[in-house]
Nucleic acid binder design. Structure first.
Lengths: 198, 198, 198, 198
DNA sequence: TATGAATGAGCGTTCATTCAT
DNA sequence: AATGAATGAACGCTCATTCAT
């Protein structure tokens, strides 16, 4: 009689452990043995759920980005326009103590994506999704008269994205000079410039 | 008398090989054997010049950043104001085929800096140096009347830095959507906003 | 359920292989690869049972000395007095073909103990145990009237120990001049001198 | 014009450095680079004077034993009988702080001699020389009436040798229990037993 | 399905030795 | 003769992966 287990729950258990360890030791520093130990499950069973380390890695990243995507969607549906955009960026791009682990894993992912086309493709899809959300918010803002009618929402979405992503990264790497409050201020100032033109 | 060799030249030979391999295989994917082969010298010889892999790694990063610092200094001394700043950002922040290797290594370095305080400190120093250069250029621009007199050059330097760094990173990771021309346009548009206020 | 193996039996398998190889190649000459091959198991497997070469080494020495200690205890419980002592020394201090490996490993251990305080401490404990056994036998012999009542059993135990240890070592290093028969004769002659005084 | 150097003096310089390093790091722990550094000479020149590490090692041991042989000869020529023997043993077998290095190297040598026939042969020759000196002293003592006329000087020389060698070794390995004074006492007590029979 | 023992390729590092100058 | 750079085999150790139970 097979033991009844929730396959997906076990997978998430392992993936969560992997994320914590990547945040601590980096992608390559994470070992399969350590993941099993961190998850509190046996070593051998890890290979029942993930065929290889790469498999686990990509699942962990997918888990991470799914959570982020869900948050983006939440924001874009809960409110509209520039205010929604600002709150989204505050919540998602800013890096503080609570989001540090995620940011470290994301950076590690980027570093690998620069080397592996497969991961680069995955990265591209995620970016496109986020850009589309931002563009929609900008269109809403324009319709609401918050920003100039001549605004090229696609180009501006790109600019906002790289700006806020850059801010978060610096917040992770150099928290002394880019504390959360400073990150906020930079984002607010940027959005204000958009508004000012109106 | 011993065989006459230029110690520093040999070190640069190895460090250059290391940079190429990091760009191809990542920090951890780079092996000492591969570096020796890439440099065209023997494996054992590598350890005459670098006591350990970490030693080689930090020297390679230092070489990279020294080159970047030198370029920044060149720009800030050769011309002045916004024009100088724009050329600096074009030359240094943009990522195209020719600067791809450097950008990959830099990203790998950032990824490690998120885990190791020593590298984080090194990163902080480099950032500070670049921020200072940008601030000086902004001050010159203000003195020349290119930007509003009320401009907070320190805060704006931060914004310019994270923006251009973010652009370069996306240029590396998603060249299809962020080709060099698009990167240029984004930077130009950003600087124009500064000017527009004047 | 995992493959069922006797963890301790595997450890002894490796430790036994280590002892044979130390006897052949010395402490430093023994390689982990050779131990695995000698034990008939794979290289990687060795590191499941011993975390490091030092770990294996100390376990091997411990195994050796445990066997010796057991023999000493056997002797001191099976018979008493000078006769017991003589048989103990014949069996334990003498070096012939059958005990050569043990003696070589022991000598290698001594050589390392002269350099490493940790091993020196281990050595001291072993010596103390053996000295105590010999002293007890001498006390028994004195109680039985085999040796003079004025005998200082502690000092004499020391003398007997260094003498028999010295003989065994020469038996190992110079078997032509110190064959087992000669070693026996020297020990017998020494003990006779004790008796003669009675 | 070749530089005028004292070939043998350079060799002794290296050999002396080797002995110090063996005493500190063991036979295998001694590296050729460290020897050159310790001798204050260049690495490459070491190989002008010694064709290989083994060559250096055997020369260092030869230097050590030559010094010991010289001392033994001195004693056997300067005085006679039991008194000479006692002084010889005090001076040569005892291990105190000043002779520790020599004793460590000697023990390392023994450990290797157990593995290499060449060194074992060298060891045998040295032993034979020392045994012969002791036998002569015993013969002198017998002629002088210090020991019983029935004494088997050859067998007794063997006994004295292994006893004093054993004492010295314990003095090295377990100085707390075998301090120099205790070593002396044990030797004196042994010789007294010889005399007592007279 | 679950477990952890078994495997061996690959890593960074050391080092005696050789060799060009 | 003197120097130290060059070489590569060998070492201890790690680790993802496989497999027997």
């Amino acid at each position: 009689m097979p033991k009844i287990v929730d396959h997906d729950a076990q997978r998430e258990l392992f993936a969560g452990a992997a994320i914590r360890l990547i945040a601590r030791d980096g992608f390559e520093g994470m070992t399969m043995r350590a993941v099993a130990a961190e998850a509190g499950l046996s070593y051998g069973s890890l290979f029942h759920y993930f065929g290889s380390k790469d498999d686990l890695l990509s699942h962990a990243v997918r888990l991470l980005t799914a959570q982020q995507s869900r948050r983006v969607n939440d924001f874009s549906s809960r409110s509209t326009g520039l205010k929604a955009l600002e709150r989204l960026l505050f919540d998602d791009a800013l890096v503080d103590a609570s989001s540090r682990d995620e940011a470290v894993v994301w950076l590690a992912f980027l570093s690998r994506a620069a080397l592996e086309p497969t991961l680069a493709a995955m990265h591209g899809q995620l970016i496109d999704g986020w850009l589309e959300r931002i563009r929609q918010m900008l269109d809403e803002a324009r319709a609401a008269g918050e920003v100039p009618t001549g605004l090229d929402s696609e180009a501006e979405a790109l600019a906002i994205w790289v700006f806020s992503a850059g801010i978060g990264q610096q917040g992770l790497l150099y928290p002394k000079r880019f504390p959360p409050a400073r990150q906020q201020k930079l984002i607010t100032a940027y959005l204000d410039k958009l508004r000012a033109k109106a």
